[in-house]
């Protein structure tokens, strides 16, 4: 967490509430697993889920992923359900849109007349909608297992090993660090704006928000100059080196991942 926020203070809780996922990733029981393996597992799993697109497989993945995150990763149940509800609006709305068909004549089993057009649900459209819903939930639960067990700097290390352009990963490392600093600054600014009667009513809120954003930008650029000086004084010559720590890959983990994928394969073959 950011250095400038004392733990236990109100700001600390605000920050934790905000960066909920990062906070629990640091505390996770799966933290000490090999991070490259975790990324590979999550990515392969995602690919299988979206490529196979079967309800049984999606359901299995949802159950497996949430149980692993809750039992092995020790993410609190309340936090996990709250996280799962974040993407729900988008998914539900767009699944309804997939399920409902509009046309100039009545079609499907259930339809209602809207004067000029008919809105109806056909068997196929409903099936697609349900499939997409479960597929998306399965995808999200696999992503959560990754992000709730692996802090971002470790994911960036994995990307570095994949030989992504150095500039790109350096920027990612730095941006990840600066996010916390800027969040801290932004929260302080919002609190002081509130203390000066900002953020009340729509008009004042807009003005306060813009002032906070403007001063945040100025302080960000000021800080960036200070950090550059700090880099130079530590011998920066155009390359940043970050300490990478890799946890050993255990045979037990490979075996359980292999069993998992065999089960997944069987479900993909048999399931509907």
């Amino acid at each position: 967490m950011s250095v400038c926020v004392p733990p236990g203070s109100k700001q600390f809780f605000l920050l934790v509430k905000f960066m909920l996922i990062d906070h629990y990733a640091q505390l996770s029981g799966l933290r000490k697993y090999n991070s490259s393996a975790k990324v590979a597992f999550a990515f392969l799993n995602l690919c299988i889920v979206i490529a196979v697109n079967k309800i049984t497989l999606s359901l299995f993945v949802i159950v497996f992923m949430s149980l692993t995150a809750l039992l092995k990763g020790k993410t609190p149940f309340k936090v996990y359900t709250r996280l799962m509800s974040i993407p729900l609006t988008f998914i539900v709305l767009s699944c309804i849109m997939i399920g409902v068909e509009f046309s100039s004549r009545p079609l499907g089993k259930y339809f209602i007349s809207l004067h000029f057009i008919y809105a109806g649900i056909t068997r196929n459209s409903a099936l697609t909608a349900v499939k997409v819903f479960f597929k998306a939930m399965a995808g999200i639960s696999s992503l959560y297992l990754l992000s709730l067990s692996t802090p971002v700097n470790e994911i960036v290390m994995v990307l570095e090993r994949l030989r992504l352009p150095k500039i790109f990963t350096e920027l990612m490392h730095l941006i990840y660090r600066y996010i916390f600093i800027l969040f801290d600054t932004a929260f302080r600014m919002q609190i002081s704006a509130k203390a000066r009667l900002g953020f009340c009513g729509f008009k004042t809120s807009c003005k306060s928000f813009a002032m906070v954003a403007g001063s945040l930008f100025i302080s960000a650029l000021k800080k960036s100059q200070a950090y550059y000086d700090a880099l130079l004084s530590r011998g920066y010559d155009g390359r940043l080196e970050f300490l990478s720590e890799e946890y050993p890959l255990k045979a037990r983990h490979i075996l359980s991942a292999a069993i998992y994928f065999v089960v997944l394969f069987l479900i993909a073959k048999v399931g509907v």
Binding site: Y178, I179, S205, F209, Y228
Partner: peptide, 30 residues
């Protein structure tokens, strides 16, 4: 890459700009 070659100071500046965009897009707006 070109910006970096011309001005090394740009690395912290660009990183701060990226963090700024992230934080601005994460703050609640009225």
């Amino acid at each position: 890459k070109k910006i970096f070659a011309e001005n090394r100071r740009a690395i912290t500046m660009l990183a701060m700009s990226g963090a700024f965009i992230f934080v601005i897009s994460a703050l609640k707006i009225p």
